[in-house]
Amino acid sequence: MQIPAPFDYVRAASVGDALALLERHGPESRVVAGGHSLLPMMKLRLARPEWLIDINGLAELDFVTEEIDRLSIGALTRHTTLLESALVGRLFPIVHDAERVIADPVVRNRGTIGGSLCQADPAEDLSTVCDVLRASVVIVGPGGEREVDMADFHRGPYESACEQSEMVTEIRLPIVARSGSAYEKVERRVGDWAVAASGASVTLAEDGTVADACIGLTALGMEGVATAAAQSLIGRQPTEEAFVEAGRLAAEASHPTDDQRGPVDYKRHLADELTRRVLRLATQRAGQSARTGSGS
């Protein structure tokens, strides 16, 4: 029977209260959101916080709001809420592509976007999604509030820019005209973590060439995004040749490891193939967005 080591538990009444509790209880205190990464680690005694600060009651962190140039998502927004939001699907179809294959529907009822990004597991799907959408993360702490780009939010596996005394409150996804995005993952079985996955966003110029692109890989040993692969597309027509080249460069930039989910060659092949597929779909969606005038 897996049972966590003993700890004390307290429920935060507000974001301010959670921060005060983190400060009062010090380095051995952690916030818990959906608990679907932290509790399994505590059950295996890989994590042994002395204090858990439960933020599940903070309705103020559970929202999806469209603003003029961005979509704001509260840190406590559950996977299920994101998947069921028509607004999210219309503006950022990549989020729905990913959410459909994150764990299973029951796990998705608990897990949150804030918890996913803070967990920073190399196989976390939403990290890649937020990378390629060039999201920013709002962090609050004793020193006030700051907004951090995903590039700076990443500090490596299981580490982020959110310090122990701080909390993530919001994720911001910029809305860019004439843009499309897509995500595809290969998993061993339904509900499993990625063997490999790729995500892309593409922005088209008036003349149909690629004005901007971003490509991210999940569970493929990448720090950040595949810059050279994305660069190779810019200024070019989004043709199959261009996607093949970008797929090749993405695979080259990946550093997969051999594990129970598959050998290196297979994973590198997936990096290539999945990148081509998401580029095709993201470009098609960008074309639709250019015609209808809707977002990414």
Binding site: G35, L39, K43, D54, T80, V106, V107
Partner: peptide, 26 residues
């Protein structure tokens, strides 16, 4: 015990959750 099998599913405020990965305190 690892939130995979789903035999422990109960409804929390009407929504299915895996009760091996929820604290009673919650």
């Amino acid at each position: 015990d690892t939130s995979n099998c789903g035999t422990c599913v109960v409804l929390l405020d009407g929504q299915p959750v895996k009760s091996c990965t929820v604290l009673a305190a919650m």
